[in-house]
């Protein structure tokens, strides 16, 4: 698969304007660019877990989707698309359908890491020919910035508020991409908005066109929940990658591949300082928390490098 940025940009738009996501939303940036992975002429059915994306892109009677779209509930996007893909196989088998369809489902981290985890795990284990895309903004943004198991340590959320006895979320975030990779499915990748989207575009196309189950974990910043200056989204994503907080990697048929290694790994402060949800870490008395955060980033990065070097 040769990659050409301008060709990718010249493809027809598959997410129409007029949806009601926030100005500067990272979620729809993720969606638009994942859908660029579809080949022209191929049809798709898009699934979607309940969340910001769903309530904003299909507010009756306005759908922003140019493809067939199904929202079912919060916790079952994996199972719902399993059924749609099953229907495709059945109709093909019975000679009732000629067209080629691809199956892509989107969920936020709430619908993916947490309440939809079982449904996702089941769909992946059954190896349905579909891509599950998590646009990970690290909290339940739709309901007002509550913590999820994707929320990074020490983040200030409405259910892990910073207080006199609390420094934000006490726990680490779940490493979902690794968990899904442990399902031994054909393709797992993690990416975000860097390198002019080359990494994301290539991984999306691979995920969509790899037969069997595929999972994409995309860091998609939320200006409201992360409390940063909206136009800075690309810079934040870059810092996520350059600090090794959000590494770019793939797991292809069980083989771990590191896609990018910063020439000079930046300190985690550079990523945290841009975001209001970590503001409390920059008080003098909380410096040790940043050290803790850095230790965890380092530990995970080392483990990833080790996995990818095998």
């Amino acid at each position: 698969m040769s990659y050409n940025f301008k060709e990718t940009m010249n493809k027809p738009e598959r997410l129409a304007p007029g949806h009601r996501m926030c100005a500067g939303c990272g979620g729809t940036i993720a969606v638009r660019n994942v859908l660029r992975g579809l080949h022209e002429g191929d049809k798709a059915v898009i699934g979607n877990a309940t969340g910001c994306l769903e309530v904003s892109t299909f507010t009756y009677p306005y759908t922003a989707w140019e493809d067939s779209y199904i929202h079912n509930a919060f916790e079952n996007a994996g199972a719902t698309l399993s059924g749609v893909e099953g229907a495709y196989k059945a109709l093909k088998k019975k000679g009732k359908l000629d067209a080629t369809y691809k199956f892509i489902t989107f969920g936020g981290d709430g619908g993916t890491y947490d309440i939809g985890f079982q449904s996702l795990s089941g769909a992946m284990e059954r190896n349905h020919d579909m891509v599950y895309v998590c646009y990970d903004n690290g909290a339940y943004m739709n309901t007002g910035i509550q913590r999820s198991s994707a929320t990074p340590m020490y983040a200030d959320t409405t259910t892990t508020p910073v207080g006199t006895k609390s420094s934000g979320k006490p726990q680490n975030r779940k490493d979902l991409a690794a968990i899904i990779a442990s399902h031994d499915i054909p393709y797992v990748a993690q990416t975000t908005f860097v390198q002019n989207f080359k990494d994301l575009h290539i991984k999306s196309e691979k995920a969509i066109y790899t037969p069997g189950a595929a999972f994409l974990n995309i860091m998609a910043p939320c200006p409201r929940g992360w409390r940063y200056n909206t136009p800075d989204i690309m810079e934040i994503c870059k810092l996520g990658v350059e600090t090794c907080y959000w590494p770019l990697f793939e797991v292809v048929n069980g083989r771990w591949i590191l896609n990018y290694e910063p020439k000079k790994k930046l300190p985690i402060e550079d990523f945290l300082v841009k975001q209001g949800r970590f503001k409390h870490l920059f008080r003098k008395e909380n410096e040790y928390l940043i050290e803790e955060f850095q230790k965890e980033v380092d530990r995970r990065w080392d483990e990833l490098v080790w996995k990818c070097s095998r």
Partner: peptide
Amino acid sequence: PVCPDSCIPVADYKRGAFDYEHCK
């Protein structure tokens, strides 16, 4: 690709005018 609102139309490899009806 950075526009969350699909407000920068592309035709023949060239971007056109902003879609102000939808740009937030």
